[in-house]
Amino acid sequence: MVTLYPGPIKVGGVRLKNHLLLAAGILGTTGASLARVLANGAGGVVTKSIGPGPNPGHPGPCLVVVDGGIINAMGLPNPSAAFADELAVLAGEPVIVSIFGGTPEEFRTVAGWFSGKASGFELNLSCPHAAGYGAAIGSDPALVEECTKAVTALGVPTWVKLTPNVADIGGIGAAAERGGADAVVAVNTVKAMRISTALRRPVLGNRFGGLSGKAIFPIAVRCVYDLYEACSIPVIGCGGVSTADNIVEMMMAGASAVEIGSAVVDDIGIFSTIANDLYSHDGIDAREIVGCAHG
Rank of each mutant, 00 (worst) to 15 (best):
G112N: 11
C292M: 13
N78T: 07
G179V: 01
A39K: 15
L34G: 01
E177W: 09
V97N: 04
E106R: 08
A130R: 15
V37Y: 01
L87H: 07
G132T: 06
G254K: 00
T158E: 12
A81Q: 15
A183L: 12
V264Y: 10
P234R: 07
K48A: 11
A263Y: 00
G171D: 04
P56I: 10
L22N: 02
C223M: 14
G53L: 14
T152N: 09
Y225K: 07
N276G: 13
A183N: 12
G41C: 03
L22E: 00
I172L: 15
N18F: 07
N55I: 04
T148N: 04
P128M: 12
G155F: 02
I26D: 07
E288V: 06
V265D: 09
V2E: 14
V221H: 08
R200G: 05
G28A: 00
F208V: 15
G41I: 02
D267E: 15
I270D: 04
E146W: 06
V221K: 08
W159P: 05
L76P: 09
E288Q: 13
C231T: 15
F83S: 03
V203I: 14
V203C: 09
S232F: 03
V65D: 14
V95H: 03
G7D: 04
A198C: 07
P128E: 11
C238A: 15
E86M: 01
R194H: 10
V64G: 09
V185K: 01
A186W: 06
I219Q: 11
H281L: 14
C127K: 00
N72D: 03
N206Y: 13
A220T: 00
P59G: 11
G239D: 11
A293P: 01
T3G: 09
A286C: 09
G53N: 13
P218E: 13
G155V: 08
M252L: 13
L22D: 00
C62V: 14
K17M: 12
A174E: 12
D277Y: 10
D277L: 10
S272M: 04
V2Y: 10
F114V: 02
A150K: 01
P234Q: 11
G237C: 06
V46H: 02
V64M: 10
G75F: 02
S212K: 08
S126R: 02
T163V: 04
E105I: 06
V258L: 05
G69F: 04
D245W: 06
P164G: 05
L90Q: 07
L90W: 05
G209W: 01
I9D: 03
V45G: 04
S115H: 11
I274C: 03
L90E: 00
G116S: 11
I169S: 03
V290P: 08
V2W: 11
L4E: 05
A253G: 13
N18W: 10
M1Y: 03
A153F: 08
K48L: 05
Y225R: 14
L16H: 14
S49I: 11
Y228I: 01
G205W: 09
G237D: 03
L278K: 08
F107S: 00
